[in-house]
Simulated assay, not measured.
Amino acid sequence: MRNLPEELFREIQKTICRPEGTFTFNYESSDLFDKSKLGGVIIEIPSGQHVFRLERDNHCCIHFYHSSPGTGTRVATIDLNELQPASTVFMAFSWSPTEIKLHMQPKASGSQLTSSTGVLSEKQFRVGTDGSVFQLGDANVDVMGVSLFQDGNPVILPTAKEAWEETTKAINILSTGESKEGYIYEVVVANLTLAILVTGYEAYSKKRFLELEQEGLIADTCALIQAFYPKKEKEAGIAEVIDSEAKEAGISVLQHIVSRGIINFQNYNVCKRAFNKAYGIKFGELGLAGDTLKDLQSYIRYRHKIVHVSPSLALLNQERVPSEDPFFSNKQVAGQAEQCFSQFIEALHSATLLLRLRPKKEPEQSI
């Protein structure tokens, strides 16, 4: 497969950049079942932010790896020692947000189709901004928060999911601190926790918003422009300007819209509208219990007061008292806030994994 013509390889890359699919082919090799031969990569295809990798190890096992920012890396394995040897083997692999599978059947009389379902992989694969595939970690080797820069430009950054996991780890570390300052220390730690949570929420939302496009999902950029740009700019042809600037910069229209700072992902209502317009995700339909979304917005509002008034602010809703009960910052509040944000991020992430491809919408023509 590594000897494929460049044009065909690019066509395959383009075709399989999607949340789910199946890839089938016949593989011919006189060495595949030969135990004296060392293992190696059979296929490695980076497609958007997907990685599809098929390899044979030195123990004659075939491993199919699939990786994407939303799902992480999973692996399905078939042991060739349990198959009938043949020089030609039918192979197929499938992937979706819920599972991956590997299928193999030697082209030999009496052979049967063998299948394997994937599990989470100890080693991770990521696609860099330059299109290269990077392996992170391995068996018994854990890595976290990996970043790689070249000439000052990012090649690999943590995914949205990884960024949020780093956020919660930082909060857990912060909560282990001790001080003799009493209640004011508890207030400061709780307030810093709120500030970190909101920053983590913003980082996750922005990263995931962009990742979805790299996983093959089509964002409705026309709806985004309609929702976020003033009427005067739209009438002046801002859509055409954005498209032209994006092409000149070598990035997608969605990436260019986000880079312009038109969407403030820290603003709950703006973030909600962006996900709805671009991908049809409605925050109110995430299946969250009770007042989770209401509480989330309150915590975001409290964070703004903490940052712009004082990090040692104890009464977080002073301007709303006595119409509201006083809301004091403390360790319990920090724990409740972390739970609230985590529930929201988990629900939003699950919703993004349920998205399916939809037809690409053509830009509307001005008359």
Rank of each mutant, 00 (worst) to 15 (best):
K101W: 05
Q150F: 14
K101E: 10
L120W: 12
V270R: 08
V241Q: 15
H349Q: 15
D79G: 01
E82G: 00
W164N: 03
R320M: 06
K206A: 14
N3D: 04
A337Y: 13
V270D: 08
V321H: 05
Q214A: 09
R208M: 14
R74Q: 07
Q112K: 12
S179T: 08
E213R: 06
S298P: 05
A92P: 05
T98C: 09
E122W: 12
L353V: 06
K294W: 12
N81S: 07
F341W: 05
Y185T: 10
I251A: 15
E6W: 07
K234I: 12
E245L: 14
Y201T: 03
T193F: 09
I42S: 00
L313W: 03
I306M: 10
G128L: 03
W95R: 05
K37M: 10
E211G: 06
L83S: 04
P158N: 11
C60F: 11
A289H: 10
S68W: 01
D291T: 11
G131W: 00
F328G: 04
L113H: 06
H59R: 11
K180S: 15
Y299R: 10
G48W: 06
A347R: 08
F328L: 08
P19F: 06
I16W: 03
A347M: 11
G137S: 00
E181C: 08
I281G: 08
S47G: 02
S252T: 15
E235T: 14
T71W: 04
A227C: 13
S47K: 05
I43D: 04
A274P: 09
I12L: 13
P154S: 07
I367P: 13
T168M: 01
N269I: 07
S179G: 04
T221M: 12
L288M: 12
T352V: 12
L212D: 09
G216M: 08
A223L: 10
M91T: 11
D34G: 02
R301S: 12
P5D: 13
A239C: 10
A274I: 13
A170N: 02
K234M: 13
A227T: 15
E285H: 13
S96Y: 09
S87R: 11
Q49A: 09
P85E: 06
V309W: 02
C271G: 07
R10N: 09
L192T: 14
T114C: 05
G152N: 14
A170D: 03
F275T: 14
A190H: 10
H66F: 10
M91H: 10
D138W: 02
A223I: 08
I100A: 03
V41A: 00
I62G: 02
M1L: 02
L348A: 13
P85M: 00
E20G: 15
N58Q: 12
S30H: 06
I367C: 15
L286Q: 13
S329F: 02
T129W: 07
S94C: 03
Y302T: 08
Y185G: 08
E233I: 12
P326V: 06
I156N: 01
Q318C: 01
A76F: 03
F25Q: 01
I173T: 03
I196V: 06
N140M: 07
L102A: 04
T77R: 10
E245R: 12
N267G: 04
H349K: 11
A351P: 09
A190L: 09
E202K: 08
